[in-house]
């Protein structure tokens, strides 16, 4: 499908496995050299599979990338076409970024058709950048139907990610002290799924109880978030999260 850009050049929507072309277009979207929605508006795209966009957020070191790796495995067995945007914050001191999320994913994912793109974000609160939305639309248009956005949930602003995604999965820190901290945590409060990463196998009862109390007290939501405990490395346990996403989608 050819898309017009700036009324001049025409470019083809790339094949889903043309990593080079996809990568280049993502760069142009990121650099504001291409307004994807404008280009798309001039053509009506083929109807594609309904896509779901899942956000995964939580503090540094809670196990987000490990969790995502398992989630990808589950989605692959369900024959999904998967793309991941992994966002890491730029250093305010040296302006460089170590884009280290992809290290935690299985090496074979690109061989299996999984598209992974690392993105550096900057700004005082490391917001999810506006161009993320265009990148997601573009990936959806070429055929990816299970999209994952990973961010470091360092503050209230990360709840803004909800603008761009269908479902938010939050991984709380095991150090979460009490209900006060839980209630102050915007991504936790607004999550669709809260996944407690139980690394030690002890069930994380204290943490589960603290979080349950806080979410049960909420008044402004029609439904409670799904609170699931499991080991992020264990695909069977992460499968429970996947099923809850699918169930929510078909409602």
């Amino acid at each position: 499908m050819a898309l017009k850009e700036n009324n001049h050049d025409v470019f083809e929507l790339p094949r889903i496995d043309d990593y080079r072309a996809i990568g280049r277009i993502l760069t142009r979207i990121e650099n504001n050299e291409l307004n994807f929605e404008e280009a798309l508006a001039e053509n009506s795209p083929r109807k594609s599979d309904r896509k779901i966009v899942v956000g995964v957020t939580g503090g540094s070191g809670v196990g987000k990338s490990t969790f995502i790796s398992s989630l990808i495995e589950v989605a692959l067995t369900n024959k999904k076409k998967i793309a991941v945007l992994a966002i890491d914050p730029m250093s305010e001191i040296d302006k460089g970024t170590f884009l280290g999320d992809r290290l935690r994913f299985h090496q074979t994912f690109p061989d299996e058709g999984v598209f992974i793109r690392s993105i550096s974000s900057s700004g005082a609160v490391h917001d999810v950048p506006e161009s993320i939305s265009s990148m997601l639309n573009f990936l959806g248009a070429i055929g990816y139907n299970f999209l994952i956005v990973e961010t470091v949930g360092v503050g209230q602003s990360d709840a803004q990610i909800k603008k761009y995604i269908d479902k938010l999965i939050f991984l709380p820190s095991p150090d979460l002290e009490d209900w006060v901290q839980a209630l102050k945590n915007e991504p936790l409060i607004n999550a669709d799924v809260i996944f407690v990463n139980d690394r030690s196998g002890n069930g994380e009862k204290r943490l589960m109880s603290t979080i349950s109390q806080v979410i049960e007290n909420r008044n402004n939501r029609k439904s409670h978030p799904n609170l699931i405990v499991g080991n992020a490395k264990n695909t069977l346990e992460v499968n429970e999260v996947y099923n809850s996403l699918e169930a929510a989608e078909s409602r």
């Binding site: 990593y19 996809i22 990568g23 730029m90 460089g96 290290l103 690109p110 690392s118």
Partner: peptide
């Protein structure tokens, strides 16, 4: 710079795929 690290024991094809995805 923005730096991506592939990890150990990669094949040239795996490195090329990452290089393309990440442009």
């Amino acid at each position: 710079y923005q730096v991506i690290y592939s990890g150990l024991h990669k094949t040239p094809k795996q490195i090329a795929d990452v290089a393309f995805q990440e442009d």
